[in-house]
């Protein structure tokens, strides 16, 4: 919010929004996902302007999968198209649309590395935007080996198949630690939660931050 205001936007937050339905959709619960997506569409369709989503997988759900879910429901299919066309992932919006200058951001001397979350990357082509924001802010950034390799979260996958999920997380954490960074930056809260949970268990000094947390340091 603060970040968007810094970018010169008037920001509205509809209080009735809940969940876009992506976990249910991916889990194979199409009916439940559809109910959640309808709720989301009702709330968002009543707004105006760009809909900015600070999470790659939620944005991908609204832009890509909600229209698929509403295929046989003309009323909501039309809503899904309208809402989807106005929806942008946060860094897409900041870089591609708003031409935001993050020069004021300050990470307090940290070195960052970027983890490319799958749904933002492969669904929405988000890769260069967050890196550009970090670089424009002159925040030190090192490359992450296998930056585009899944961290193993995958929503219900990590609950149903915890062993494989944990093995994938270990690989990710090893490359994070080898990168020399002390902050992993991402655009997807759920992946960061997963990676952060693994780092915490290892009592690692590396922490995770959402890109918005890095760009706005006076977050309260």
């Amino acid at each position: 919010m603060t970040l968007l205001e810094q970018a010169g936007c008037d920001v509205e937050f509809p209080l009735d929004q809940t969940c876009c339905g992506q976990p249910a959709f991916n889990g194979g619960f199409a009916d439940e996902a559809r109910a959640q997506a309808r709720q989301t569409l009702d709330v968002l369709d009543a707004t105006e302007g760009t809909i900015v989503v600070p999470s790659g997988s939620c944005a991908a759900m609204i832009i890509q999968h909600t229209p698929e879910l509403m295929e046989h429901d003309p009323e909501y299919a039309a809503k899904a198209d309208r809402v989807g066309a106005r929806t942008r992932e946060l860094t897409q919006f900041l870089v591609d649309d708003a031409d935001f200058d993050p020069a004021a951001a300050d990470c307090g001397g940290c070195t960052t590395t970027y983890h490319a979350s799958c749904h933002g990357l492969r669904g929405l082509n988000v890769l260069t935007q967050p890196k550009k924001l970090l670089d424009d802010a002159e925040i030190p950034r090192v490359d992450l080996e296998g930056e585009d390799e899944c961290c193993g979260f995958g929503g219900l996958f990590s609950v149903k198949m915890p062993e494989v999920s944990a093995a994938m997380m270990d690989t990710k954490i090893k490359s994070i630690e080898a990168s020399g960074a002390d902050v992993v930056v991402g655009v997807d809260v759920s992946c960061l939660m997963h990676i952060g949970g693994g780092l915490q268990r290892r009592k690692s000094n590396v922490t995770t931050k959402h890109i918005a947390e890095v760009l706005v340091e006076d977050l309260t």
Partner: peptide, 9 residues
Amino acid sequence: PAASPLCGA
């Protein structure tokens, strides 16, 4: 089918 994080690689 459950054994995938749906990463899309």
